[in-house]
Amino acid sequence: MDINIDDILADLDRDTTAVEYSDPSQQLPSDGTTVMMNSSIDPNRYKHTQIEISPEKDFKQLMRLWRNERCSPELLPYPSLLMSRMLRRVQEQMDHIENVSMGFLEEYESLEPAPTPNNKLQLLCMEAELERVKFVIRSYLRCRLNKVDKYMLYLRQLNDNEDDPGITPLNELLSSHELHYHEKHSAILLKLLNNSIVKHMPPELQAINDTEGSVSMVDEPNWNKFVFIYVKGIPNDPLLEEGESGKPCYTVSISDLNEDVELSIGGIYVMPYSVIRDLLMQEKIELI
């Protein structure tokens, strides 16, 4: 009897790993093509993801992005490849759990079909895990949507001056559904404002993105918000320098204070966001 249960467990293990291992091979070709377009903006991340795509790494990456997104004042670029992989895995895991709970998998083994207590426990763990992953994704997406709402006008402006090379175009910053949401929501919000107020105003006062007057009407992210950072560093980075303490570190300068600061690897610092933004984009640091 005991051996039978072990067999079931082993079978389940094999099954889940089989699903997971098939991922990279399926994913790699499509990664290659999409990365071609993305590589101009972020070559470092490309290298990072290309080395190995395992579900575990992806999950860690998602957690990192989730934390970064929640801590940063601005909207960070949308990880479309990672998200599509995560969403697909959630789907697969849901199907898998369904199969296990219906007892389809055990039929192959021609064992007793009764769900054993062990089996139940395993199912419970899998479901709990799945719910948690779903929660992280949900929280991440809601956080982004919140920012999309908050900086609605600012994002619209980003779209207008696309020529500026320093600005990521909107369609790389947002996913397709976020773009759609942004467009639609700003349309209906403007309609509301227009119908109830703006159209009753004299023509010279009808602008709603006036930045000239007393207070700017366009909410911009607070670039000088203080954030906690953890310096992770990437191996063999040419930007790394030998610090005073002999440890490798990055040097950033705070323009307001006219001061250079050394960020040594493994350290935790509080910095204005604008100072460390570039390092964050290159994934050399994490927000915490």
Binding site: L87, V90, Q91, K134, R138, L141, R142, L145, H177
Partner: peptide
């Protein structure tokens, strides 16, 4: 695509 995630959960 996000039906699985249940955004409003």
């Amino acid at each position: 695509d996000l039906a699985d995630i249940d955004l409003s959960g």
